[in-house]
Structures are given as structure tokens and as C-alpha cells.
Design a protein around this nucleic acid. Structure first.
Lengths: 223, 223
DNA sequence: TGGTGTGAATGCCTTCACAGCG
DNA sequence: CGCTGTGAAGGCATTCACACCA
């Protein structure tokens, strides 16, 4: 099926893989796609690393968690490694995604091209405002939140993106869990708690800016 | 000036503080604000920690990098700690922010309330499309990218948010650096390189989803 | 020569455990 | 008694260094 080199060992316990490694895997994938677009067919751990700010050893160690993908003396064949990483991340499967909360940010995500490119497709949107229900935005139907369970089942949706106001986020999350959701990306600026059988990633736009101001303020103005 | 307890030591080298600690600091801040809104005046390291998924020791250690904020037998007084963290992050200063790229995502961020609440204000937006230049969106003036230097200087803007397409991101970043920018949050799905005198945080919406699918696919369906 | 994969060493972050204080 | 601040211990992730391969 695939021409991966020695695939004998899918045997490592996936639970034991550091979160940071998985994050870097996504960065490798993005960078590999960039390399392909720029016309190169192979790259190396040191090239990849220096582009992303990691050591070459780090890159090799990360990939070694999942198998043997490199070719000594050559490096990594981009297309081959891209396919491998997409299989590892699961994005080769194509994921229908639900979006809850059709406000400014929700609408922006509905129009975001990057999702499709990486194997995601927002398949249904939800809101509680009747004025929005029934509309099509960027080709995606907007349902009332009460239709959540029905629509998730119909489209076999397993992951959701939350873009509702902070005050509503926990309640929405609970309803998603009741409907059997398996993973959530939360853009509401509040901590939500879920059973740990459900995967959760939080993105807070203000927090990203805070990380910047901290390092700007605390930069030693040498150099 | 402030009633922080023993503030003798701002003496720790800020460079030596782990990135992860600063990240959690932002989470503590957000949670403390939540606690205040819910009517409580104090909280404790264990309460904070369990809400956010950290141990109590972790919370205390993190805060100890920056000083002594707690009250034995009582815990942390929310308002006091909020102010301390905002000073540490620098967000007590109020930051004018530039936004480059008035597309879907850019527009959404222009309307995002959360920034103001945390001490940021998008003060100027930029684009290269003449149709957008001159408009006011959410009360923010849209300038042509060629006016970048002039406007940044005028408003004393030191940090910027990039929401342009991936193909334009590096060039925009370079221009920002030329104008003396000190920090950048990059929402374009591509790695950009900057002199390391400039702080950089990247946010890739598709990558967040990839983290979710990985853990969903690799969940051991026990429990 | 140019590059991978990987045990061993290093270093950093987290957790433990407890003294000390209100 | 409750809870903080912190040295010491522990564990985990990164880096080093080298055998091996094309």
C-alpha cells in the first residue's frame, strides 16, 4: 500500500508520545509542503530543523518515534514523509468538522481555506440566533444548536470548533460531549473542563499577544 | 506604589524563565479574572491548579519566579495577583497593535472584544487592496501597506498581528522588521523567519485541529 | 562525503515534602 | 490548621556523539 521503508513497528504506545512532539510533527508537515511547492524533492533533518528553529537531532528523534522514514546519505523524500505524517496525524482520513458559534470569528473560520488543504472540512455550523439559522455561509449550512445531535450523527462528525462567547462556552462544550463528540478546539477565552476521554485544545488570541509583550518588555536590549 | 508583599527581587534574569511558565501565567490571569467575576476574592494554588489541569506545586513554583504573592493560610488575593501578573506580562501598559491583512480573519480580529479587555487595542490596519484602503472597520482605519512606517511611528506601535495569505507573510514580516517592530503574532500558515531580536509567536488554525485528530485517532478506547 | 537512527549523557522542568507563617 | 515558598529528588525531553549506510 505505502512504500514506507521499514514499517514493522507501529508498536509504540501512542499515549507515551510527548505532546510537544506531535506539535512539531505538524510543523514538519507544513514545512515539507512548503519545500515541495518550492520544487525540491528531498530535504534533511538539519535543513528542516534550522528552518523551524530546532536541532537536527531533535527532528530525527521526533520522527523516530513513529518509524524509519529517512534515507542515509539522501535525507527525507518530501512526498513520502508528508504522506507518513498525515497518516500519523490522521489527517489522511478527511475530517468533517462542526463549528459552533457564527459570530465574527466563526464566519472567518468558515471561509478559511487552510482547513480544506490539511484534510478538514467544516460541514455544519450552529448558532442559537434564529436570524442566522437556515442561512448558508461560505457554502455551509447554519443549524440551530438544538439540532446538534441529529446533524452530528448524520454527517458522522467527531470533532468540533467552539467560537461562541466565553459565557456560553462551557455549556456548549457539555452539549457536545453529550452528543458524543471526541475532540474540541476551543477559541472562547475561558477554561472549559471536559471528561478526559475527550481531546481538548484551547486557543486564546489575547494570550498569544501576552506572550509577545512579555518577551518584548523583558528583552535585554543588548545586541 | 503597589502593595505587593516583598518586592525586593525583580532580580531574576527574565531570559531564564521557561516559555511554558509565561504561557501558564496567562492562563492563571484569565482564570483569576473568572474567579473575580464569580464573586470570590481569594483562591489557592490547588484550586487554580485543578481548574487548569496543573498541580498546586506547579502553580506556586511558577509564581515564585516573579516574587512572593501568596498569603500563607489564605491563598492568593485575586485582585492583587491579577495586577501583579499584568505588570509581569506588561499588559498593564496598554498596547497599540497593528493588524496587517484585512481579509476574513483580519476583520474578525478587528471586531474581537477580548483584546481590549486584556490591554490591547488594534490601532491601525493595513492592506494592499485599494478597495479596502481608507475604510473604517470596527472603528479602525485601514491604511495602505506603504504607509506602514509612518503610521507605526505616529502611534508608537511596537507589536503587530499578521493575517495575510501565506505567500505574502514573509515579505510583510520583513517590512515590519524594517520599520522597527519588536513583536509579531503570525496567523499565516507558514513559517517565517525574523532576526531573533524580534519576538515571534505563530498560530496555525489547522495545526490545532491536527493535534486533536492525532489524539482522537490514537486514543486507547478503554475507560 | 553526507546523512540517518539511536544509546548515553545532559539539562531542564515538574513533583515531592516539609519548614514556616498567619 | 491551611496554605505558601522552596530546597531536594525525580523524571522527561533535548542534545551529543558515533556506528552505520548509500
Amino acid at each position: 500500500m505505502s512504500r514506507a521503508k521499514k514499517n514493522r513497528a507501529e508498536s509504540i504506545d501512542p499515549q507515551s508520545i510527548p505532546k510537544a512532539v506531535v506539535n512539531r510533527l505538524s510543523l514538519y508537515l507544513r514545512e515539507l509542503q512548503h519545500v515541495v511547492r518550492s520544487g525540491r524533492e528531498t530535504t534533511s533533518s538539519s535543513r528542516l530543523g534550522s528552518r523551524l528553529g530546532f536541532t537536527d537531532a531533535q527532528v530525527r528523534k521526533d520522527l523516530a518515534y513513529f518509524g524509519q522514514f529517512g534515507h542515509p546519505g539522501v535525507g527525507y523524500r518530501c512526498q513520502e514523509l508528508i504522506e507518513a505524517i498525515r497518516r500519523i496525524l490522521g489527517t489522511d482520513l478527511g475530517w468533517p468538522v462542526a463549528l459552533i458559534g457564527v459570530g465574527n470569528l466563526g464566519r472567518a473560520l468558515l471561509g478559511y481555506r487552510g482547513f480544506n488543504r490539511q484534510g478538514f472540512r467544516i460541514t455544519a455550523a450552529f448558532d442559537v440566533e434564529q436570524a442566522k439559522v437556515g442561512a448558508q455561509i461560505e457554502g455551509v449550512e447554519v443549524y440551530h444548536l438544538d439540532q446538534l445531535e441529529q446533524v452530528l450523527l448524520k454527517h458522522a462528525i467527531r470533532v468540533a470548533v467552539i467560537t461562541v462567547p466565553a459565557t456560553a462556552a462551557q455549556e456548549v462544550a457539555d452539549r457536545l460531549v453529550d452528543c458524543g463528540i471526541e475532540g474540541v478546539v476551543n477559541f472562547a477565552p475561558v477554561t472549559i473542563s471536559l471528561p478526559d476521554s475527550v481531546s481538548l485544545v484551547g486557543v486564546d488570541l489575547a494570550i498569544e499577544l501576552e506572550q509577545i509583550t512579555f518577551s518584548v518588555v523583558n528583552r535585554t536590549n543588548s545586541r
